[in-house]
Nucleic acid binder design. Structure first.
Length: 833
RNA sequence: GCCCGGGUGGCGGAAUUGGUAGACGCAAGGGACUUAAAAUCCCUCGGGAGGUGACUCCCGUGCCGGUUCGACUCCGGCCUCGGGCACCA
């Protein structure tokens, strides 16, 4: 052992030890409780950044902590290897996406290994590997045969110059990022998965996810957006066509003054054929990006179609408009507008001078100025024929019943959630295993995998697959006749929605999953960025239910406990290449070692919050580790000797007479155990930054143990021995290398990786006296000492007898005393009445 | 625009969930050691006022209001920063 902390050397030694003993290879044969710890796998962008370091350190701390709790831990790692950046790199550097991706993976793997993460590398998954995606293709064909897959038209961002489809992020100010051309919405046929068929279950099961953050559960609920309402049929005047709309406020039906259609609504398109102004408006709407945020923030506009509808209950004639804010994807792509009782309808009505008709009046009969705003709350009906005087809730039911009786409507549950579009018109993705046969139609491919050709030229104009007859020309699996493959590929969310299960049986070649998946899944702890709170997690939950219904897993949910960690910021803004404020982990590891970088990223902020980068904070973390090393070195000989004596059962620790020892010494030992208890609590609630604080406190305590008399030498050594053994084990999940080395050098039992978690000590924690705070009217006035078993009356008496309390009370009288045992006494005082 | 979070010293954050605001660390200032520097160690450190002094008092958790014996914590209304919004992952 060296008296200087040399991280590079000890980190190499520790990692070699773990490797040689295959410490992190998980199997299913253990009789310990299993614990599956999974961090969201990364996109292999090329190098490890601080966000990765933080994310994966958090996961590793949990995995190592659980292992020390005696669990059979599996912590795997893999690569979410398909995606847009590889195509962009291919255009820029003229390298095939596959080559670029594999090179990145190889480099990033070495960086991960350097971090000392406790991964079972034998389970590594790469999603662009046909051995992985063939099962995804197989499963898709199953779903296709089950009728859970269908094709329909959907809108995409179309770049007319590059002749390609753009991702939302590739559209900048309405123009293609490379060509600069005005982007258009274009309808193309796409494959969809029927996630809406599982909407109710996905919504209801959120209640079972008790160990997910409430925030994420709320976001998922809102995304699914279940709403109960009524479908109302409005016949079009002088036509057989009937227009269907969905509303959650049928009580306002008599206040409808116009109907608004989505620009993509078939009726709008039909009306535009004879209406050039309308056609121009529809064309204008084609220049809006597909993203909902763009739709919602642009100025509200509309055009009158000239068509009218007939009110189903009054037979009034109602004008039909087209409005750019109506979503074709939601409800029926048309809304009944009630400007008196809906703010957006109100704004639109004022803008285009449409009439506003009040049908709801506030319950307290207060006046409302409808020229200023809509009255959107529930109330009492007026101007609604026989429904007058009904309150909103009852009126909704009554009006819906009347519509049903008249055959003009029905009850309807609507979801905001839309079916999952899994087609991407991109090259670098999993080929969709569908063959289009001129006689049989779309047929699922039987001969799997459909391998993506990797050695290609990628230019960014269209997908190379579309120009490769050797790829798309095939024969129909059904009739054997000539046919063509789909050239679209899957959304990369598809790969990331089932990888967690495949880690259980990565090399399985005869099936997608086997019984091992049921051993490991559900994941006990899933860790990832809050940016994945809705889409990734919802798709993975959906996929899990599909796997269950196919008999491949036997649980309902994939992730038992979820931790969503914050981002790494530098000077208050997200670290990013484009802003140029990134901090490279590699040079820091070279300089301070992995343990320092891990320690800092754990200590600087709680996992769920954003982390502010600080160079001097890293120095501080390093300083702490050096002090830990120094403390161990100072006590090395004594501890080594004592540990050997403990093994030989000749230690004098057993003979210590605690009752007769100085209170100062017992006090130190009590604090050691208080810190241990707190750290345990913090580990359990995943607040690791305060675990580090606790370790720092413990170190400070152990370096300042009060001078012991000669007779207390054994006691002092006992405290040091206990303190250091607890400190090293508390720190081991966070800084595994230094603790591995010190544990060994001080001759503690076993290797640190196999050490057991420290047990608490009730006797050491026991206190005769406690300090309580005395408040007067909630303000801190004094502190008192009291026996820890004193009752409320006694505490009250001690508090009132206190000199400072008496001084502060002066002329006031006691009105009430509140006693919080072990904490405080609050005296409610006031002037004599 | 809609949904979901965050806001506490000069800075990162703590306060076990309504009970001592500022733990722990960083930065800063002062001191020790050193020929010097680095490293290390010790002390001070939210703001204001008073006292020679151990100390005492007042203010203070984005802003305004409320509930409570007591509010960083709960409720209502704002301001502000961030995440997501279906083809970035």
């Amino acid at each position: 052992m060296n008296d200087l902390y040399n991280p590079q050397e000890i980190e190499r030694i520790a990692q070699e030890y773990w490797e040689a003993h295959q410490c992190f290879q998980a199997d299913e044969k253990s009789n310990k409780t299993k614990f599956y710890c999974l961090s969201m796998f990364p996109y292999p962008s090329g190098y490890l950044h601080m966000g990765h370091v933080r994310n994966y350190t958090i996961g590793d701390v949990i995995a190592r902590f659980q292992r020390m709790q005696g669990k059979n831990v599996m912590q795997p790692m893999g690569w979410d290897a398909f995606g847009l950046p590889a195509e962009n790199a291919a255009i820029q550097n003229k390298i095939p996406p596959a080559e670029w991706t594999y090179k990145n993976i190889a480099y990033m793997r070495t960086q991960f290994k350097r971090m000392g993460f406790a991964y079972d590398w034998s389970r590594e998954i790469t999603t662009c590997d046909p051995k992985y995606y063939r099962w995804e293709q197989w499963f898709f064909v199953k779903l296709f045969e089950k009728g859970l897959v269908y094709k329909k038209n959907a809108e995409v961002n179309w770049d007319p110059v590059d002749q390609t489809i753009l991702a939302n992020e590739q559209v900048v100010d309405g123009r293609g990022w490379r060509s600069g051309a005005l982007v258009e919405r274009r309808e193309i046929p796409q494959w969809f998965l029927k996630i809406t068929a599982y909407a109710d279950e996905l919504l209801n099961d959120i209640d079972t996810l008790e160990q997910w953050p409430d925030q994420v559960r709320a976001m998922q609920r809102n995304w699914i957006g279940r709403s109960e309402g009524t479908e109302v049929i409005f016949p079009i005047s002088n036509s057989d066509v009937k227009l269907t709309i969905f509303t959650t406020r049928p009580d306002t039906l008599f206040g409808v003054t116009y109907i608004a259609l989505a620009p993509q609504h078939p009726l709008a398109k039909q009306a535009a054929e004879k209406n050039p102004a309308l056609q121009q408006f529809l064309d204008e709407c084609r220049n809006i990006k597909v993203a909902e945020a763009d739709l919602a923030t642009m100025p509200k506009k509309g055009v009158n179609t000239g068509l009218t509808a007939v009110h189903p209950l009054t037979n009034e004639i109602i004008p039909i408009w087209v409005a750019n804010f109506v979503l074709m994807e939601y409800g029926a792509g048309a809304v009944m507008a009630v400007p008196a009782h809906d703010q957006r309808d109100h704004d639109f009505a004022k803008q285009y001078h449409l009439s506003i008709k009040q049908v709801i009046t506030p319950l307290d009969d207060s006046a409302w100025d409808f020229s200023k705003a809509a009255f959107v709350d529930d109330g009492k009906l007026i101007h609604s024929q026989t429904f007058d005087n009904l309150e909103s809730e009852k009126a909704c039911a009554a009006i819906t019943d009347a519509l049903i009786a008249a055959n003009k409507g029905q009850r309807k549950i609507n979801f905001r959630l839309r079916d999952w579009s899994v087609s991407r018109q991109r090259y670098w993705g999993t080929p969709i295993p569908i063959v289009n046969c001129p006689t049989c139609g779309a047929v699922g491919e039987k001969n799997l995998p459909v391998v993506l050709p990797e050695n290609i030229q990628f230019t960014g104009v269209s997908s190379p697959l579309k120009t490769m007859p050797e790829f798309y020309k095939t024969t129909c699996p059904k009739c054997g006749g000539p046919a063509e493959r789909e050239t679209d590929t899957f959304d990369t969310f598809f790969e990331s929605s089932w990888y967690y299960a495949r880690f259980a049986c990565k090399n399985l070649e005869t099936a997608m999953l086997d019984e091992r998946a049921n051993y490991w899944v559900p994941v006990d702890q899933y860790i990832g960025g809050i940016e994945h709170a809705v889409m990734h997690l919802l798709y993975a939950r959906f996929m899990h239910k599909l796997l269950r219904d196919e008999g491949l897993v036997n649980s309902d949910e994939p992730f038992k406990r979820l931790l969503t960690q914050g981002m790494v910021l530098n000077q208050g803004i997200k670290m990013s290449k484009s802003i140029g404020n990134t901090v490279e982990p590699a040079p820091l590891i070279d300089r301070y070692g992995t343990d320092t970088v891990r320690l800092f990223s754990i200590f600087a902020a709680p996992p769920e919050q954003n982390l502010e980068w600080s160079d001097s904070g890293v120095e501080g973390a390093h300083r702490f580790l050096k002090r830990v090393w120094a403390l161990a070195y100072e006590n090395r000989e004594a501890l080594e000797k004592e540990n050997k004596a403990l093994k030989a059962n000749t230690s004098r620790f057993k003979t210590i007479q605690w009752e007769n020892t100085d209170a100062k010494q017992r006090n130190v030992l009590r604090q050691v155990y208080e810190i241990l208890e707190q750290a345990q609590y913090d580990y359990d609630r995943l607040q690791f930054n305060t675990v580090v604080s606790g370790c720092m406190k413990l170190l400070n305590l152990l370096t300042k143990i009060p001078e012991a008399t000669h007779a207390e030498a054994d006691i002092q050594l006992y405290i040091i021995h206990t303190g250091i053994s607890i400190l090293l084990r508390l720190l081991a999940p966070i800084a595994p290398h230094i603790t591995h080395q010190l544990w060994q050098d001080l001759h503690f039992e076993n290797a640190m990786i196999d050490a057991t978690w420290p047990a608490s000590s009730k006797s050491a924690l026991k206190m005769d006296h406690v300090e309580l705070v005395v408040q007067i009217n909630g303000k801190l006035r004094s502190r008192i000492q009291a026996p820890s078993d004193a009752d409320q009356k006694t505490l009250e008496q001690i508090a009132l007898a206190d000199a400072k309390v008496q001084h502060a009370m002066a002329e006031q009288v006691v009105k009430k005393v509140i006693v919080v045992p072990g904490k405080l006494i609050n005296i409610v005082a006031g002037a004599k009445s």
